[in-house]
Amino acid sequence: MNIFRLLGDLSHLLAIIILLLKIWKTRSCAGISGKSQILFAIVYTTRYLDLLTTYISAYNTFMKIIFIATSYTTVFLMYVKFKATYDHNHDTFRIEFLILPTSLLALLINHEFTIIEILWTFSIYLESVAILPQLFLVSKTGEAESITSHYLFALGCYRGLYLLNWVYRYYAENYYELIAIVAGLVQTILYCDFFYLYITKVLKGKKLQLPA
C-alpha cells in the first residue's frame, strides 16, 4: 500500500458517499445516471468475486464489501425508493453498447482463460467506460448540480491517483498490471474534459454549464 493508492481508494469512497448523501438528503436522484450506477454495480460484482477465493487483507476485504454494498444501495435508491425523481428521459445511453464490446474484449485480451479471470478483466474494461452514461446525461441536459460535479471530480481523482500508484509501483516494486494500466489511462482521459470545466467553473462558484 502506498499513499497514492490509499488516497485513491479514499477519494473513491468519498465519491460514493457524496452521491449517496446527495440522493438521501435531497430525496432525489435528478441529474444522476442510473445506467452508470448499474454498470458500477456490475463492475464491483464481477471484480470482487475473488472475495470468495482469495484473502488479501482486512482492508481489502472491507473496502470490497463496502463498494459492492454501496453500489447496490445506490441502484436501489434510484430505481426503487426515489424512482419518481429519476431522470429517465435524459438517461438514454444504451449500456449494451458498452457491455457487449467490453465482454468481447475481455474474452480476447486476458491473462488466463478462466471464468474468474475473464470476469475480472471484463470488470476492468467496463469500469473504464462506465461513467460514459453519466457524462452523456450531463451533456444532454447541458448542466450538472454542483454536488454532482463534486461526485464526478472525486471519482476522477480516484482514477488519477491510481495512475500515480502504478507509476510508483513500477519503480518501487517492479510491479505492473498492463490490463489495469491501459484501462485506467482510458478512464482517466474520459474525465479530462470534465476536469477542465470543474476547475474553471465549479471551483469559482459557478454551476457546471456546458457551452451551448
Binding site: 493508492r5 481508494d9 473513491h12 475473488d50 482469495t54 488479501i56 487483507s57 481489502n60 473496502m63 470490497k64 463498494f67 491473462h111 488466463e112 479471470e117 475480472w120 491510481y162 500508484n165 516494486e173 517492479n174 510491479y175 505492473y176 498490471e177 489495469a180
Partner: peptide, 10 residues
C-alpha cells in the same frame, strides 16, 4: 516479481 495473479488492488 509480484506480477499476476496477485491482485491486491481494489
Amino acid at each position: 516479481h509480484p506480477h499476476y495473479p496477485f491482485k491486491d488492488e481494489l
